[in-house]
Write a protein that binds this DNA or RNA. Structure first.
Length: 520
DNA sequence: TTTTATT
């Protein structure tokens, strides 16, 4: 059994900053960390639990030979995840740091697949399993690389463990409770590999923690025994013990938070289209509902949709988007256009493109079309879901808002130069019966393109048309959208009919067939 | 009351 002591340390490397105090568990055991201190590293006083490496289930792992070194790795080699890497360090810079623990089989810095942006983390596989263990013991949470505020992470990559859910979120803790307190609470139910109390920048507990057990079963037994079992002094309700959010759930949670803030921090989106954020919110809720359905109802009932609607929302799958081969744009030399085309898939585009004046592609197509080809992760082995798309979209929006602060965004009404005539010339095409929608109560500002973007998330839009008053050249606030299949049209009706924009609610219904409207 | 990232 692990032994631990409580320590208090203060960070040394930002003398001018507020000095957060930090408490952490110190585990001691047979695998005591070596005391090497490479030059590159800032000594760090944290000590965290040593993690037990899972042994491979069998010896069937393929032997791989690295092209550069030509050296073999152990069959039981461990792929390590390296975190908290400064973004200016590349493989060659990191190599010396890790080489001291053994021969490296492969080292890969992770980059964003659209922008090439350094993600601040890497994968590392040593030829020898033992090297990985040594590196983790020596480095994990032990040192902080220059410019980083948190210590380096060196631990088995997620891919190394059988992906079982064994990490718990613990909520409604008392803010005074430390890692040790939490550890003591959960210890009876199994082997704890990680125990972290979440803290704000000032080092104060957020009243919640993560606890990772070595198996799913242990984690489940802790839930059964502890969830709701007691109320911590000062906490507003009883202890919460549940499996931690998956990445996708986290992404959706963050998007919802961000959308909630959009109207506040982004004047371009705040007025008069603040409802666009609720549009985005509606889309996210659909995603949440789809996920709730596919994950056995993990999310709160408040975002759940009736089963029939969930079925129809399946049309949100990116597979239903039209294939439009275009050359991907890469690099950051002209960020708004590039980020739009390369990193912001269709679902979020209504927010970004509709309100920030991002230029359309010079070919007259809205920039969003590029997404159809780029939105598919090349490594994906299964059909990407709309949630995947959302995740990508969110990344894009984050990057966009990071690079272009809200104050620099083009306000609504000020349009950037764009080949408007070319866009207008989209020919009006009807889809098959049951695929054509009539939309009424559109915002005055909506043109064909905005209309199309609003309905793209539901499928392939083969045409969109807002009717204009010939005399004034103003929108008549109604239009038509045609999909290539009835399911998309139905999904759009379900999601968008009655959708509130400003003081109005959209009316979305099937267009009456021509012969029905003009009987004779 | 859900972290700092996982090809």
């Amino acid at each position: 059994m692990a032994r631990f002591t409580q320590t208090e340390t203060r960070r040394q490397h930002h003398p001018q900053q507020p000095q957060p105090s930090h408490s952490s568990l110190v585990f001691t055991g047979p695998g005591a960390p070596p005391t090497q201190q490479p030059l590159l590293l800032i000594p760090h006083q944290h000590q965290y639990p040593q993690i037990t490496f899972p042994k491979p289930m069998n010896g069937s792992e393929p032997i791989s030979i690295h092209p550069e070194s030509g050296n073999m790795k152990d069959q039981d080699a461990i792929k390590l995840f390296i975190g908290q890497i400064p973004r200016n360090l590349e493989e060659k810079d990191l190599k010396p740091l890790f080489e001291q623990f053994g021969k490296i089989h492969e080292l890969t810095v992770l980059k964003d697949r659209y922008t090439g942006m350094h993600k601040g983390c890497a994968f590392l596989t040593y030829c020898a399993r033992e090297s990985a263990i040594k590196a983790q013991n020596a480095l994990h949470e032990q040192k902080t690389l220059p410019g980083m505020t948190r210590p380096i992470q060196v631990k088995p990559a997620d891919s190394e463990s059988r992906g079982e859910d064994r990490k718990l979120f613990v909520g409604m803790l008392n803010k005074q409770q430390t890692e040790e307190d939490v550890y003591r609470l959960f210890e009876p139910y199994g082997v704890i590999e990680e125990c972290t109390v979440l803290r704000g920048p000032d080092g104060n507990s957020k009243g919640c923690a993560f606890v990772k057990f070595s198996t799913h079963t242990e984690a489940q037994s802790a839930i059964s025994a502890l969830h709701g079992s007691q109320t911590m002094p000062g906490a507003s309700s009883s202890l919460v013990v549940k499996f931690a959010d998956t990445d996708k759930e986290r992404t959706i949670r963050r998007m919802q938070q961000m959308v909630g803030q959009f109207g506040i921090f982004n004047p371009a989106i705040a007025l008069p289209f603040s409802t666009y954020s609720s549009y985005a919110h509606a889309l996210m809720q659909q995603q949440a509902a789809i996920m709730a359905a596919s994950h056995g109802g993990y999310l709160t009932p408040s975002v759940a949709f009736p089963a029939t609607q969930i079925h129809q929302m399946g049309a949100l799958n990116i597979n239903s988007l039209p294939p439009t081969p275009m050359t991907p744009v890469s690099g950051l030399s002209s960020p708004p256009a590039n980020i739009t085309t390369s990193a912001v898939p269709s679902i979020v585009t209504p927010i970004v493109n509709g309100f920030t004046g991002i230029p359309h592609q010079p070919n007259g197509h809205p920039a969003v079309e590029t997404v159809y080809t780029n939105g598919l992760p090349p490594y994906s082995t299964q059909s990407p879901t709309a949630a995947d798309t959302l995740q990508q979209a969110f990344t894009g929006v984050q990057q966009y808002t990071a690079i272009y602060p809200a104050t620099t965004l083009t306000p609504i009404g000020q349009t950037l130069p764009q080949p408007a005539q070319v866009i207008q010339q989209q020919q009006q095409r009807e889809g098959p019966e049951g695929c054509n929608l009539f939309i009424y109560h559109l915002p005055q500002e909506f043109g064909d393109n905005e209309l199309m973007q609003m309905f793209l998330p539901f499928g392939t839009v083969i045409s969109s048309k807002v009717f204009m008053d010939r005399a004034t050249n103003q929108s008549k606030c109604f239009g038509f959208v045609s999909f290539d299949n009835p399911a998309s049209a139905q999904a759009a009706i379900q999601a968008m009919n009655g959708f509130q924009i400003g003081m109005k609610r959209l009316k979305v219904q099937l267009k009456r067939p021509k012969d029905a409207s003009r009987p004779y």
